[in-house]
């Protein structure tokens, strides 16, 4: 147990100093801010909707940026775009140990392999949790700022709604990060896992969903098990009443409970795969 604690602490210290982790967090914050606040607010100020805002009225645009919608603005990108960034982080953390030759240095220090890979995963999901919190705080700051500037009422979601939203968001991001780590450990590299993972999230899932919805409905049971579809359904189930259209990837294809169970199952299977494969692998680099 002390091995696991030592490794997790060491990995967190590494992550804090890892420039790539900050770049990814900055990218996620930028995504949230640009699509959650900057574009809607500028469109509102211009008095028009347009293609980027799906024809919403100015009043709807403003309402979508206020504190009541902070959960939506924080977590809407998690199933797809921010999820892709979490996957990149997972692949970086796990794959770099193989390509950088650092894994041999770590393993020869003495901790059990299960502790090494388990500790790396624990640090990864902890970092993802901190990232989710940072996203929430920046979104909350922007929402509060807009409410004050526009002289709107400041009404936050209830603590329960916040906990459900952020908890679900963290689970979705942790799942993507763990899947990135699986790719990193299985493929023992960084570039290929990132490439494959991003193509999967941004392309293949959408293709399968589209085909299952239109021409090949027999694929729907498979579609309902996809990680992106499941996380979109989970996030959709914890959002407050929607003012405008749901963001890309956030739709209730399956029930929230089923989405939660599937996402949790992916996260657990991913974690077990990392530990089992990591324990058995020859470290020859």
């Amino acid at each position: 147990m002390s091995d696991l604690v030592n490794v997790t602490r060491a990995e967190l210290a590494k992550l804090v100093r890892r420039p790539a982790a900050w770049v990814l967090l900055a990218a996620a914050i930028t995504l949230d801010q640009v699509f959650g606040f900057v574009i809607p607010y500028l469109s509102y100020k211009n008095g028009s909707g347009g293609a980027m805002t799906d024809g919403e009225s100015p009043a709807q645009l403003l309402a979508g940026t206020l504190p009541a919608q902070v959960i939506t603005n924080t977590t809407a990108a998690f199933p797809v775009f921010a999820g892709a960034l979490a996957l990149v982080l997972g692949a970086l953390v796990a794959g770099n140990e193989f390509t950088g030759g650092t894994l041999k240095t770590l393993l020869t220090q003495g901790p059990r392999r299960a502790s090494v890979f388990g500790g790396q995963l624990l640090a990864l999901v902890t970092a993802v949790g901190v990232g989710v919190l940072a996203l929430f705080l920046t979104c909350a700051a922007s929402a509060l700022g807009i409410a004050l500037v526009e002289d709107q009422a400041v009404g936050w979601p209830s603590i329960g709604d916040l906990a459900a939203g952020l908890g679900s968001g963290w689970l979705v991001m942790a799942m993507w990060a763990s899947l990135g780590a699986v790719f990193g450990v299985v493929l023992r590299s960084v570039a290929l896992p990132i490439g494959l993972g991003v193509v999967w999230i941004l392309g293949i899932e959408n293709l399968i969903s589209a085909v299952a919805r239109t021409s090949l409905t027999a694929l729907q049971p498979l579609r309902d098990l996809l990680p992106g579809v499941s996380s979109g359904s989970l996030i959709s189930s914890v959002l407050p009443v929607q003012i405008g259209p749901l963001p890309p990837g956030v739709q209730s294809t399956v029930s929230g409970e089923r989405g939660l169970a599937t996402v949790a199952a992916y996260a657990v299977v991913a974690a077990l795969t990392v530990v089992v494969v990591g324990r058995r692998r020859d470290v020859s680099a």
């Binding site: 002390s2 091995d3 030592n6 490794v7 602490r9 060491a10 210290a13 590494k14 100093r17 890892r18 420039p19 950088g100 030759g101 650092t102 894994l103 041999k104 240095t105 770590l106 020869t108 220090q109 003495g110 901790p111 090494v116």
Partner: peptide, 24 residues
């Protein structure tokens, strides 16, 4: 073994501290 494997973004001291944590 076969060349040193450390983290390029950490200082020499921090790299060793990381290893010290791993080694307990």
């Amino acid at each position: 073994i076969e060349g040193p494997g450390f983290y390029p973004y950490l200082t020499g001291r921090t790299n060793l501290r990381t290893m010290a944590r791993y080694a307990g």
